[in-house]
Amino acid sequence: MNAPETAADPRSTEDEIHEHVPAGSTWAGLVFGLATLATGALVLEQGWSVNGELDPSGPRFMPVVVGALWVALAAAYVAGMAMNLVRRTVPDSVERFDHIPRVLFLIVLLIGYAYALDPVGYIVSTAVFFVVAAAVLGSREHVRDLVVAVGIAVAVYFLFSRSLGIYLPPGVLPL
């Protein structure tokens, strides 16, 4: 009799993971990549159609830059998916839908953040959003998350309001 494989054997764990991934997952990644590439090409084409010069202060510059970067990243993704298809391997990024409850909770959290932004204020709602999102994504360092969240929210608030003249909602804080 053969000895049972243990979880310490990396090949057995990898085989178990790939065993449960549907065969069409590589095709789904390729189709997604092609759709993303087409969307990037549309953004780039629309950016070029904006009237004006292509200088950094003009209205065409950022749409063209974003479109070009989008196309480059999507092309790299499509190339990677095509290579996986040729090699007949399943990429690590193709997983079962284990994370759907987290994703749905984050979407609801983001909608709540958008509604809380004006009445509660940018600093408070952003800090709460950051801490709760970190916890949903698996962080167990809540004090660290709170310190980082408040620090980033305050820094961004003052950067926008004092340096750029873009006033974010102060909400309940008298700023």
Rank of each mutant, 00 (worst) to 15 (best):
S139M: 06
V65W: 08
D55R: 14
S49V: 03
M83W: 01
L110P: 06
E19V: 00
M81D: 04
S125D: 06
V132Q: 03
V78C: 14
G171R: 04
A133H: 02
L54E: 14
P119T: 14
I111P: 08
A35R: 06
V31W: 09
E14D: 08
D92G: 04
E95L: 03
G24A: 09
S163L: 10
A114C: 14
L175V: 01
P22Y: 10
V94L: 12
S139H: 14
R96T: 07
V136S: 06
E45K: 12
V124R: 09
V66E: 06
L173P: 03
P91R: 02
V94C: 02
A38H: 04
L173E: 04
H142K: 11
S49N: 14
V150P: 01
D9W: 09
L117D: 03
I107L: 13
F97L: 12
V31C: 05
E5T: 09
V90E: 00
I152C: 05
R60A: 14
V90I: 14
R162W: 08
P59R: 12
F160L: 15
Q46M: 05
A116E: 10
V50L: 13
G112C: 12
D98V: 04
Y115E: 13
V21I: 15
G171W: 05
F158G: 10
F158R: 08
I17K: 05
L159E: 05
L164H: 06
